[in-house]
Design a binder for these strands. Structure first.
Length: 221
DNA sequence: GGCCAGGACACCA
DNA sequence: TGGTGTCATGGC
């Protein structure tokens, strides 16, 4: 059995070989990353793209516009991504916090230490571990690993974690066994998501089966 | 018509 | 502390 660090590197190399660089996050600005991170909660990215396009079309995709917009209007603009009422409130919670504490400046907010930013994000209603870490990695460029449902499933199937392993524990597995590089963590998480989508597209089966298939692919290489 | 998608939170025992 | 219900649209 290979050491954890070698196994994680091996998985990365296989995914990179298949998909190449992903150039994540698909957004034009850090603020767009944050909005996308909230909108994609338990939602397919295709639905999120429509909501983001709506916001851009109406020229509402900026901290100041978000601060001014009413929740009801924001909710209607992001309707395509589902849970629009609750997500509109969550986005408002974030933007209110940003203006109250940093005068709406993301760069001021991100000038804090990584741990400090994470703590503040998690204290905002509607921002949980995955959303906070997506923001830290893809909007602030901090070296934190994003753990999502795909990541958990892959690691379980690889025997690297037990079922119901805590989020932070899984995160530590990556961060303690790989070089602490935002570029690497960026690519790794993106590759995991891309691969889950890729296998499913080739054959429309549930992601459980898709990952099982992927595991057999890995064992052959 | 049913299932699922790049979660988070309130509520309850 | 852990389990469960809720939030909701769109693609397949």
């Amino acid at each position: 059995m290979l050491k954890t660090s070698k196994r994680l590197s091996k998985i990365y190399n296989i995914l990179y070989k298949i998909h190449g660089p992903r150039n994540w996050w698909p957004a034009d600005s850090p603020f767009e990353v944050i909005v996308g991170a909230v909108l994609t909660q338990n939602t397919s990215w295709e639905n999120v793209k429509k909501a983001i396009a709506n916001l851009k079309r109406k020229r509402k995709l900026s901290p100041r516009q978000f601060y001014k917009i009413k929740i009801s209007e924001l909710s209607s603009l992001i309707k395509s991504c589902g849970y629009h009422n609750i997500k509109a409130k969550r986005l408002k919670s974030f933007i209110d916090y940003l203006f109250k504490n940093y005068k709406g400046s993301l760069s001021k907010f991100f000038s804090n230490s990584t741990a400090n930013i994470r703590k503040q994000l998690l204290a905002i209603n509607g921002i949980g571990p995955e959303t906070a870490d997506s923001i830290l990695l893809y909007a602030a460029g901090k070296a934190v690993f994003v753990v999502d449902a795909y990541t958990k499933r892959i690691l379980e199937r690889q025997g690297l974690i037990k079922p119901n392993t805590a989020y932070e524990q899984i995160q530590q597995l990556f961060e303690n066994n790989l070089p602490k590089s935002s570029k690497l963590f960026n690519e790794y998480h993106a590759l995991i998501v891309e691969h889950a989508k890729w296998v499913c597209k080739k054959k429309p089966i549930c992601s459980e089966c898709a990952l099982r298939k992927w595991c057999s692919y890995e064992s052959q290489h």
